[in-house]
Each structure stands twice: as C-alpha cells, then as structure tokens.
Design a protein around this nucleic acid. Structure first.
Lengths: 197, 197
DNA sequence: CGGTCTCTTGACGGAGTTCAAAGCTAGTGG
DNA sequence: CCACTAGCTTTGAACTCCGTCAAGAGACCG
C-alpha cells in the first residue's frame, strides 16, 4: 500500500518540480500529509452544504464540480483530469458551506490534503509557498480569460474556444456536460456542433 | 514627493498586515520597488497588444479592465477601486500580448510594481510570498463564484448578486458599465432595474 | 435483451439584442 | 447664470438566439 502511494504522488512532484526543486527528504515530508483515495464513477467527494476543508489533487481519472439550481439544472464550474486541482476555494477560505458537488466522471484516484495539513506542510517546506502562489496566479489568469470569453462570446464562440484550449476534455466528457460547463442547453450545443463539423 | 509616496502605500501595508506582519524596515524595502502614478479619468494604463508586465495596486480612485470586440462592444472583466489589484494575469505570466484595456473610470492614483521588481521584493521579504499566495487564493475563490453566477443566473439574478456583493461599485459606476460587466446590454439592465426598484 | 444514458431534431415561446429616438443630467463655456 | 453639449438612461418595436418541451434514435452495460 505504501508503494502505491509513493507512485501516486509522482504527478504532484512533477508539477512542483516545474516551479521549485524539492529534495528527496522534502518529498518524503509531503508524503506524510497527503491522503490517497479511490473514487468510483458517480461517487461524490463534496456535497452542497458541506464545508470544503481539503485540497484535492487528481492523480488519475476525472472529476467535476457543479451546482444544481431549484429546477434541477446543473452548472459545471470545473473539470479536473490528471494533474489538476479541484475544490470550492470560497468555502475553503471562508469556512462557509459549499454550494458545489464534486463528483467523479470516471473512476478516479485522488490525493487529498487537509487545510491544517496543507498549512503545516508549507510551514515545513517554505519553498512550497512559492509553488502554490504561482499555481493560484495561473489559475486566476485562466479564470479571467474564461470569464471574458463567457460574457463576450455566443454558444459557438465559447465552444470553439473550449475545443481549442482543452480538446482532450471535450473528448472525454459527455456532450451535455460540456454544455453545462459553457452555460448553454444541451440542445443548443448539439445544434452548434452540427453547423461547425 | 517622498512623503507623498510614503502616505500612499499605507493602504497596501494595511492589507498586507491582515496576513503577515512587516517590520518598519521591511516596509521601507517595499517602498523602493513601487512606483506611484496619477491617472486622469479616461486615461489608459494598458492597451490591447501590449504586454502586461506590471502589477497595479489602486490607492485612490477606480480603474476598469475590459476587452472590445470587432463590433465595438465592451466587455468589462473587472473594476478596481481603492485597495484592489488589477491586471491581465494571463499576459503577465505568459508574456503574451494582452487583450484588455485598463482605463481610469475616475481620477486615480496607483502604485505599480514591475514583474522583475515584484520577484526581487518577494525574494528579499519572503513573508510576502505568503501574502500573495493568499491574495491569489481569494481572487480565485471570488472568480469561481462569479463564474458560477454568470452561467447559472439570468440578468436579474446577476444584477441582484452584484448589488449584494459590491453595492459601492454599483453606485460609483455608470449603469452601462455595470451591464457590460454582467455581459448584458444596457437596455436589458435598464429594464430589469425598472422591475426590481 | 431491456433499461439507462446520451445525442439529435422539431416546434414553440421567451429573454435578451439591436436599432432608433427621446428624455434626462451634469459639466462647460460664453 | 444660463445655454448648450455630451454622456447617460429610458422606452419602444422588431428580430434572433437560445431555452423549453417532447419525441425518437443510437449506444452501452448489466
């Protein structure tokens, strides 16, 4: 079991190494804090009303976060394939109840990091402070562009931009989820695709 | 002139002090890096095509960032009143050309920080790494919620949420800019307001 | 092979856009 | 101090894109 966990964090260390260099000893310290979990397709990691008090790193598989309104419509905030992070950051920082579901779209393996553990890990390896700063900086950059796309483009434009940026996700995920991510109806997306193919 | 700059950074130190404690000496180091500027209403700090290679902190007044499409329509990404940061983070991290205008909505005083200077400042005051990490974490949290609002709510819902979150900005800014921030036409916003008042 | 999930297609209605014009407000200069 | 202008908001009417509802057809899995 220990071997499996070692293997699994490789993806995390890979992405860390792009920003800061960890010694083998420091990597071992990290391993103390992460908790590995396996999530079956359609299982949930977070439910609306719960507080999101962990950081989730996807090692394998694919997760999505989404809200559901009174009418039962789903609105997808994010997809998280291998190497990505996912969570409700507002709930995480404020301690308030989350509004999102986080659910496995495929069978998925994650590494989870409690809020306290994350702080302690960063305290013991200050280099990671830099890693997380840059990670959030990049996440903000992407969200800014997505925000602008979303208010400026129509259905066709938004879909085209998504295909350009994340062709892999468009392949892996049911089409109605793509629609829900773009904020349009499945029917609208179906019709747009018909034109542009 | 030196006195003026000292006064102006107070707002920055205030927001830093909520996260990490700086010594007076460290504050002096910060002062070496920031450059104070005054921007008149309708003047630009950034134009599409330029690279956004600075971080902008607003001391006084109000800025906005927005794109313009082929038809001349404006789409506002962000308003930045006193105590807020503004910039094109994607251009900043990637070095690619920006797509945004950053323009003064009111006469404004800013503190600007070059990309290299920011890195050096953080290198000399490692505590700031933590400050900026948390700043971007909170920015991401807000963008996530705004993203969800934008794809799940209609015009009335988006406007109501904005009034709830930032009543001050709704007051200070022309209504057509609020519309442009929400991604709806000025006419649509006008009609929604008529109902709900 | 039957059920669930998914995508497509059609018809209709509604929210929002577009275009145009008029009313309002505040700032400017004579 | 008033008149004029420029920017802003409102209102109306026509149009359009998209959401909604409903039905049907594949595709996949147990």
């Amino acid at each position: 079991m220990a071997i499996r966990i070692d293997q699994m964090l490789e993806l995390f260390f890979q992405s860390v190494s792009k920003r800061v260099a960890l010694t083998p000893e420091e990597e071992d310290i990290c391993r103390e804090f992460f908790v590995a979990k396996k999530i079956r397709k359609r299982q949930f990691i977070l439910r609306p009303g719960e507080v999101c008090d962990t950081t989730i790193f996807v090692e394998k598989g694919l997760l999505r976060s989404y809200t559901v309104d009174e009418r039962g419509h789903e609105y997808i905030l994010q997809f998280a394939p291998e190497g990505w992070w996912i969570g409700d950051l507002y709930s995480f920082t404020s301690g308030e109840a989350s509004i999102y579901n986080i659910e496995a779209v495929e069978d998925t393996e994650i590494q989870q990091l409690g809020k306290e553990d994350e702080e302690e890990m960063i305290a013991r390896i200050p280099k990671l402070e830099r890693f997380f700063r840059i990670k959030f900086l990049n996440a903000c950059a992407a969200l800014q562009r997505r925000m602008t796309l979303n208010i400026s483009e129509n259905t066709a434009g938004k879909y085209a931009a998504l295909v350009r940026s994340y062709p892999d996700i468009v392949q892996r995920v049911p089409q109605h989820m793509i629609a829900s991510y773009l904020g349009v109806s499945p029917e609208a997306l179906s019709r747009v695709r018909k034109q542009t193919v």
